[in-house]
């Protein structure tokens, strides 16, 4: 299908999505071919089927899905489109897998500008290409004005795991080390700084990035000594470690002084009464690694551009109460609990 088949060109500059673009008729076909196919361009989409077929090699596959409702849609360091690609790639990669394909579903509010939609789709295409992943299936729906906040995106991803690798959050063992790949809280603070009712400026940009290449070097260095990997998104490091503590039935003891936090993020959190370990990340991972190979994995992380600030921040300990505890930089200790509710709504 080519754009030439339509009477009028899609007015990307000034046009807006209307209800006809979700109706299944010519307008929708034009939107899909003129905007999404151009942005995502690959051999699967070019065949214009309701599904895409691909060959698989023998082995274990992983699959994940995620919805993106971030507000604002554009933020320092990315937008909802790049986030929807990175986030789902990362969920696949946390199993140690190599991500292969994505699908993307768009729920668009009537009146949404084509120019924004194009910018978002283009950045999805760019994010997928630079990650070596293809968006091979999609869907578009348009809802009436007021029924969605601009645009919601759902992405599903699949990937393939190397033989012998079986990471799972119930596999942490007492004595394992806790590694993080870099500074915490960047994404949440970047989003927060763009909310209209937060009148301050910061140079912090979202850390949104695909982590599977970092994961690959870690797997090469540590193999099955890597017991668990998670990307600490909503709820931050605190939520992630509490989840792992419950699933693995043990506790963690952290050293606050070892946890990397950028000064601008620490300062913003201070102003807003937030704790960086509760703030979301979109380009960081937490790895629980057997002690004998922890240093090797950490060295591999530090040698990779996405892990240059990686740190060993603590260890898994026996604790039937499954508490995450932290030695404070001040010489006391405290509990690191889950958040009670939403700290910042709609950050991803």
């Amino acid at each position: 299908m080519s754009v030439k088949g339509y009477q009028r060109k899609l007015d990307v500059e000034n046009g807006r999505v209307d209800l006809s673009h979700g109706s299944g008729g010519r307008a929708m076909a034009q939107l899909i071919s003129g905007l999404f196919h151009q942005a995502f361009g690959n051999e699967w989409l070019a065949r214009c089927n309701d599904q895409s077929a691909f060959d698989v090699t023998a082995g274990r596959m992983v699959m994940t899905t995620d919805g993106y409702v971030v507000s604002p849609l554009f933020f320092p360091g990315g937008n909802i489109g790049s986030l929807a690609v990175h986030g789902t790639i990362n969920d696949v990669a946390m199993s140690g897998a190599r991500p292969l394909y994505l699908s993307a579903s768009f729920i668009i509010e009537e009146g949404f500008p084509f120019s924004d939609l194009k910018a978002i789709a283009d950045s999805m295409g760019a994010a997928a290409r630079s990650a070596g992943v293809y968006i091979i299936a999609g869907d578009t729906k348009v809802v009436e004005r007021g029924k969605a906040d601009g645009l919601f995106i759902s992405t599903t991803g699949i990937g393939i795991v190397a033989d012998g690798l079986d990471l799972s959050a119930d596999k942490a063992r007492v004595g394992d080390r806790v590694l993080v790949s870099g500074s915490l809280g960047d994404h949440g603070v970047a989003i927060m700084s763009k909310r209209q009712n937060v009148p301050f400026q910061t140079e912090v940009v979202s850390d949104s990035v695909a982590l599977h290449n970092l994961v690959a070097v870690m797997v090469a260095a540590g193999g099955s000594a890597i017991r668990v990997m998670r990307d600490p998104t909503r709820g931050g490091l605190a939520a992630t470690l509490n989840e792992i503590a419950h699933q693995s039935e043990l506790g963690f003891r952290l050293q606050e002084a070892s946890i990397p936090v950028k000064p601008a993020v620490a300062a913003t959190c201070e102003l807003l009464g937030l704790d960086p370990i509760h703030v979301a990340n979109e380009g960081k991972l937490v790895a629980i690694v057997a002690p004998d190979l922890a240093d090797a994995v950490l060295a591999a992380m530090k040698a990779h551009p996405l892990g240059s600030d990686a740190a060993d921040i603590g260890e898994a300990v026996a604790d039937n109460r499954k508490f995450v505890q932290m030695a404070t930089g001040f010489g006391g200790r405290r509990i690191v609990d889950w958040l009670w509710g939403e700290q910042l709504p709609r950050i991803c």
């Binding site: 930089g329 010489g331 006391g332 405290r334």
Partner: peptide, 9 residues
């Protein structure tokens, strides 16, 4: 006091 564990000191 709680956040920094001051009672321990």
């Amino acid at each position: 006091i709680s956040r920094y564990g001051l009672e321990d000191l």
